[in-house]
């Protein structure tokens, strides 16, 4: 699923324009009644320590396949008109954008649910790993059990 199509994923180092991505989800269509989106950002603290930056590592090739598969599952569960997923990698600082998920559908229920589903599945199935820079040194972020339960409820 490549950029430019109705269902696309991008894994990139560059930042993205969330407003432009939102607009593109309904551009040149008259059947879109709902656009839901999520933007994930780098926080300046995690697990009791300040975070000055983080580096996101990923598995080139598998990452794109995993995201495509998650979008495909969302399309099978809900009636969706467009989906856009962007996930960044590399070194990011607090307030930087990490991830964008946008979903366009005829009605809000499908857009809300699919957007949350894609994020929950991405958290447990897309091969990304965060390494944080903190005052006590660099550390790899541990996976959260709450992320597993969030994905399991679907």
């Amino acid at each position: 699923m490549r950029p430019g199509s109705d269902f696309s994923v991008s894994v990139q180092e560059a930042d993205f324009d969330a407003g432009a991505e939102m607009g593109a989800l309904s551009a040149s269509r008259r059947d879109v009644g709902a656009v839901a989106s999520f933007v994930g950002l780098v926080r300046d603290a995690n697990d009791g320590n300040g975070v000055s930056a983080m580096t996101l590592e990923h598995y080139p090739g598998m990452t794109e396949k995993a995201l495509d598969e998650i979008v495909e599952q969302a399309r099978q569960r809900w009636s969706l008109l467009r989906v856009r997923v962007i996930h960044r990698f590399g070194r990011l600082e607090p307030a930087d954008r990490i991830v964008f998920v946008g979903v366009a559908s005829a009605h809000r229920g499908d857009a809300f649910a699919a957007c949350e589903f894609i994020m929950d599945y991405l958290k447990t199935r897309a091969p990304f790993w965060k390494c944080e820079e903190t005052p006590v040194g660099a550390r790899w972020v541990d996976a959260r059990i709450s992320d597993d339960s969030a994905a399991a409820r679907w």
Binding site: H58, K65, H87, V99, R125, A126, F128, D142, A143
Partner: peptide, 24 residues
């Protein structure tokens, strides 16, 4: 493709090992 421990490994395969993922 994510797999379990019982997954067969054959000649030419690409096998990856990693910790639980933490993206998003």
């Amino acid at each position: 493709r994510m797999v379990g421990a019982d997954e067969p490994v054959a000649a030419g395969d690409e096998v990856a090992f990693f910790p639980p993922v933490t993206g998003g």
